[in-house]
Structures are given as structure tokens and as C-alpha cells.
């Protein structure tokens, strides 16, 4: 399935199916994170463990302010953890003796409000990774960037600045910017939260298309249960703060996914199963009455 936008090259179809993914296995063991703002300890993540298989689409669902972003930031290397360890493909990212992971192009984040550089065109943004890593010359990187954008149906927009395209386009370009580096994991922090339902469904379609093509491990934080089930292989429901794994639900819907599945019986059963777990936590979060942060 792909989105037919007139006058644009459609995404490449019928690529050879990617072999069973071998990269991007994340293991999170007993991770605890305590913030210490002005002498008051805030425990954001408490003894949280998760095993994410290589090539899995892992959806993290939990109430606002429970510590999901904290977990993602620890994996990305934006901040340290207090105890526990996180490994990527067996290699230690952070753990005892190394509280903060190094940032690297094997784990790339797509941000909630988008972080394409507004001063670079879409093509320059996409070319940025390979260029600064010294993998390609500037010219070759730009050429490849145009190709990758065309592959994602954004061929006509390479010369535009992010401020000139819709938020949906920008988010897609941001995913292209991540994938051109061939990362082991894609980390998405509520990337479609601020979008309307129609744009969101187009975003889902294109992310699914990207996943079917690359089989990259996806670590995806969301509030939206339908989104979690529609996109994910596994849904991890986490508790209200401090964040801990409450329930894992496997989604056995076949791939490639399509919108008919949204109205299937199986889908509805999954929604109510997850809803129950999430609702419990949502009530706890609500009763604690904390002001949520994005």
C-alpha cells in the first residue's frame, strides 16, 4: 500500500524482502533513573526491565509524566541513568561505571515537535548524517538524499526548507534523515501527537511502508492505543511514575498491515485488553494530580 500523490514518484515497490533482522536488539535491565532537581529526588524510572528483539516494533504506552521520555533519552544517550544497564546487540550502552551512553548514529531519535534543522533544506537535512560522519562527500550525500526523499514520496520537496512544508511532510523527511544512516534502532517520542487524525493515518501508512522495507527496530512512545496496536509487534504498558513494565501484549496481526484491520474483531479485543491496563494507571496518575509535561 502506498499513498498515490499525483505527480510524485511512488515509493519503490517490490523490493526483495529483507532477511530476518539481526540488528537492533535492546535489552533494558533493572534501569532506575532519579532526577535531582534542587535537592528533591524525583524517581522517574524504577527497576524497569524490557527485552526488545531485533527488528521489533516496540510500542511504549503509559500515562503522561510517567517516565517514558526518560527511558528513551537514556537509550539515546541524552542523559545518564542512576542504576541498571542498557545493551544494544549485546554491547553495553550504559550501565555500571558508565552512567551515560555515547550518542551515535546507530540510535536515532525522531522528536515530538520535530527537529529538522530549519536553516537547511530537506535534502541538506537528510544529507547531514552521512556528511558529518565522513561517509560521503557533500555532493554524494546530497545526491543520495534526493534519491531517498524521492523514495519516500518527497521528491519534489528536497529544495524546500522545513518551515515551508506541512508538519506531516517534515516528520516524514525526519524519518528519512534518520534512516539514511542505516541505524539499528529508530527512537520515536510521540512523533504524531500534535497531528490531526487524517494526517496521522497517512503518517502511519508511510511508517509501516518504511518498516516493511527496512525492518529496523522501532522504539515508539505513544498515548494512542489504536496507533500502538496498528503499528506495533508488541505493546509495553508501563506504570505511572516511577515507570516500570506493567504488561506486555503481543500483537499478532499479520504484516503488511492495512486499515481494514482497524475494524477487525482481533483488533478490538487487543484494544480492550490494553485499555484495561492503561486505564488503571491513568487513574493513578490522575489521582496523584501532577501537572504533566510534554
Amino acid at each position: 500500500m502506498n499513498i498515490a500523490i499525483p505527480g510524485q514518484p511512488s515509493p519503490v515497490q517490490g523490493l526483495a524482502p529483507v532477511a530476518k533482522p539481526t540488528r537492533g536488539q535492546i535489552s533494558i535491565k533493572n534501569v532506575t533513573k532519579i532526577y535531582d532537581p534542587e535537592g528533591v529526588n524525583v524517581m522517574a524510572v524504577d527497576d524497569c526491565s524490557m527485552e526488545i528483539a531485533a527488528g521489533e516494533v516496540c510500542m511504549i504506552v503509559g500515562p503522561s509524566g510517567c517516565g517514558k521520555t526518560t527511558l528513551l533519552n537514556a537509550i539515546a544517550g541524552f542523559h545518564s541513568i542512576t542504576s541498571g544497564e542498557i545493551r544494544l546487540d549485546g554491547e553495553l550502552l550504559c550501565g555500571p561505571g558508565k552512567p551515560k551512553a555515547d550518542q551515535g548514529a546507530d540510535r536515532i531519535v525522531v522528536f515530538q515537535h520535530g527537529a529538522l534543522f530549519p536553516w537547511k533544506t530537506l535534502a541538506e537535512n537528510v544529507a547531514y548524517g552521512p556528511m558529518v560522519q565522513g561517509k560521503l562527500s557533500k555532493k554524494d550525500a546530497l545526491e543520495k538524499a534526493h534519491f531517498k526523499l524521492a523514495e519516500a514520496g518527497l521528491g519534489d520537496f528536497g529544495g524546500k526548507y522545513p518551515g515551508e512544508v506541512s508538519s506531516g511532510m517534515a516528520r516524514r523527511a525526519e524519518i528519512v534523515r534518520a534512516l539514511i544512516n542505516d541505524p539499528a534502532v529508530l527512537l520515536l517520542d510521540e512523533p504524531y501527537r500534535a497531528m490531526d487524525a487524517l494526517t496521522k493515518s497517512i503518517m502511519h501508512e508511510s511508517l509501516l511502508e518504511v518498516y516493511d522495507r527496512t525492518k529496523v527496530t522501532i522504539f515508539f512512545i505513544t498515548h494512542d492505543l489504536d496507533e500502538a496496536i496498528f503499528l506495533g509487534d508488541k505493546v509495553y504498558v508501563v506504570t505511572t511514575r516511577p515507570c516500570r513494565l506493567k504488561k506486555t501484549v503481543e500483537v499478532k496481526l499479520p504484516r503488511p498491515r492495512n486499515f481494514e484491520m482497524l475494524s477487525s474483531e482481533e483488533f478490538r479485543v487487543l484494544v480492550s485488553e490494553i485499555n484495561e491496563a492503561v486505564h488503571e494507571e491513568a487513574i493513578k496518575a490522575f489521582q496523584s494530580g501532577e501537572r504533566e509535561m510534554a
Binding site: 539515546a76 544517550g77 541524552f78 550518542q103 551515535g104 548514529a105 540510535r107 536515532i108 531519535v109 522528536f111 515537535h113 527537529a115 529538522l116 534543522f117 537547511k120 547531514y128 548524517g129 558529518v132 560522519q133 534523515r177 534518520a178 544512516n181
Partner: peptide, 20 residues
């Protein structure tokens, strides 16, 4: 977020200075 994005994409300190 721009600093973080640049970090993820493998920038050196100098790259961050020049491009961000």
C-alpha cells in the same frame, strides 16, 4: 532538540558549532 538531533546524527563538536 537541535543539539540532540545533531548528536544523534554523529556530529563532532565542530560540526555542532558550524551547523547548529
Amino acid at each position: 532538540a537541535y543539539f540532540r538531533a545533531a548528536g544523534c546524527l554523529g556530529s563532532s563538536k565542530w560540526d555542532v558549532f558550524k551547523h547548529v
